[in-house]
Each structure stands twice: as structure tokens, then as C-alpha cells.
Computed example of a mutant assay.
Amino acid sequence: MDHHLPVDVRGSIRLFAFYIANGTLDMELLDGIDYKPEIMAFGSALEQVFAIFANVLQVDEQGEVVNHGDAQYRAAQWVRMVCDPSYVVEPPFEPWETELA
């Protein structure tokens, strides 16, 4: 039995990390928002962003990611909410989406 994450999942996580570090996470939703200082100043905010991404990410029976864009968008919504208190997340986060495992 293979105990590693499927290649597609690892690639999706790597790409997500690149977007966060590069300042290009969901360019449309976060246009004009310099989120990096806010979420990278303390580990807990960055931890929450990755938790949301990982909790929302889905894979099929072959281990292929089926909703990278949706997982990235939900994480970006949380970032926007942190940086812009007037932003309303729609739909609101479900408890399972923000759970830290």
C-alpha cells in the first residue's frame, strides 16, 4: 500500500503554496490587496489558509484532484476576509472547512 499523497494532490498543494508566496493567490478576488504581510506575519493565519485549502480539496478514486480552483477560492475568501473586514464570505464557511486537523 502506498502511504504517500498522490502526485496530483502534491502538485496541487505545491501550486497553491507558490501562489501564496508569489502574491498571486486568486488575482481576481484579491486584486489590490497586499495579503502577504497579514497572513505571513504569524504562523496561525498561514496555517488557517492551508487548512481551508486542504479541507476543501477533493480527489477522485484515482487520486486526481477534482476541485483545485474551488479549494483555492475558498482559501482566498478567508484571506480577503482577514484583510478586508467589510468582505462577506458567500457562502459562509462551514465548520469542517476551517477545522485545523
Rank of each mutant, 00 (worst) to 15 (best):
F42I: 09
G63Q: 02
E61Y: 11
Y35N: 06
V9H: 07
Q77P: 13
V7Q: 15
Y73D: 10
V82L: 15
V79E: 10
E47I: 00
F93G: 11
G23K: 05
V66W: 02
I33V: 15
R80E: 06
A76T: 03
S86P: 14
Y19L: 10
G23C: 04
D8G: 09
G43P: 08
L25I: 03
Q58M: 10
A54L: 03
E38G: 06
Q58S: 09
S44G: 04
C83S: 13
D8H: 12
T98E: 02
A54W: 00
R74P: 13
S86G: 15
C83Q: 08
D26H: 12
T98P: 11
P91Q: 07
V49I: 04
F16M: 08
A51S: 00
L15S: 13
G11A: 08
L100G: 00
P95H: 02
P37N: 10
S12L: 02
I39L: 10
F53E: 00
R10T: 09
S86R: 14
D26G: 02
E94Y: 11
Y35F: 14
Q48F: 00
W96S: 05
V79H: 12
I39F: 09
E61V: 08
M27V: 12
R74E: 08
I52P: 08
T98M: 05
I13S: 07
D2W: 11
P85T: 12
G32Q: 07
L25R: 08
E38R: 14
Q72R: 14
L30T: 05
L46I: 06
D31V: 05
V59S: 11
P85R: 12
S12N: 03
T24P: 02
G63V: 07
N67Y: 02
P85Y: 09
F42E: 15
P6M: 03
P91Y: 05
M81D: 14
L46K: 11
R14N: 13
A71H: 05
V82D: 10
A71V: 01
E47F: 01
G32M: 07
M1Q: 14
L29F: 07
V49F: 01
A45S: 13
Q77G: 07
E94R: 14
K36Q: 15
R74S: 05
F50M: 07
F42V: 11
A21L: 13
R14T: 10
A45R: 15
N55I: 00
Q48T: 01
P92K: 05
V49M: 05
F18V: 03
Y19D: 12
I52V: 09
E38T: 13
P6L: 04
L29V: 03
D84K: 08
W78V: 00
C83F: 11
E99Q: 01
I33C: 08
F42D: 15
Y19P: 03
E64G: 11
N22K: 13
V56L: 06
A21T: 14
A101F: 00
E99P: 01
S86T: 15
D26C: 09
